[in-house]
Amino acid sequence: MKNYILVLTTILLLSGCAGQVISTDTLAEIDPQQSFLDILKSPLAYKGSTVLLGGVIVKATNKSEGTLLEVYQTMLNRNQKPINIDDSHGRFLALYKGFLDSEVYRSGRRVTIAGVVQGEETMKLGEVNYRYPYLIIKEINLFQEEKPIGYDPYYPYHYGYPWYPYDPWLYPRYRHRYYPYN
């Protein structure tokens, strides 16, 4: 009985931290007041400090010194997960000293990065000379890909769908009304 309670308590305690993706030690180094806009404006002012940034990967490049991620920044929720991925203040570069496969860390995937600001790097983006804050990654978390909220779990097999096959909207003539992307 005592064991049982112990196990339950442990599970409860562990589950409370399940959302956290960056270690507590690293999080402790981060200034909670930091804003990406400030870092973007003057990366050099933040040189040497640990920052927490997240967003969506634009490109991952394998280089001799490591893997360079180009990321567009988005907001993080309180579990440090990037949200509102259509809103961004800008981009940053983050170098991981080691190998990350660019097929895994590919364009469109969400990452949260705790890293140390090294300075800035200017690269061409379209016709703009874009000044990227440049950091070296201490910790990185890659998030699972998500289905859109309106994702139809039944498509294309509508068995289990309550009105199949009597739903008139299911058939090609009217299909676009409910399934605009098919």
Partner: peptide, 25 residues
Amino acid sequence: YLWTEDDYYKSEPAIHFGIGVGVGL
């Protein structure tokens, strides 16, 4: 305005009023 996929899925009102005769084509 940038549309999201959700804008397309959530487009139709959930309640339809009307009288219909269904013929599958």
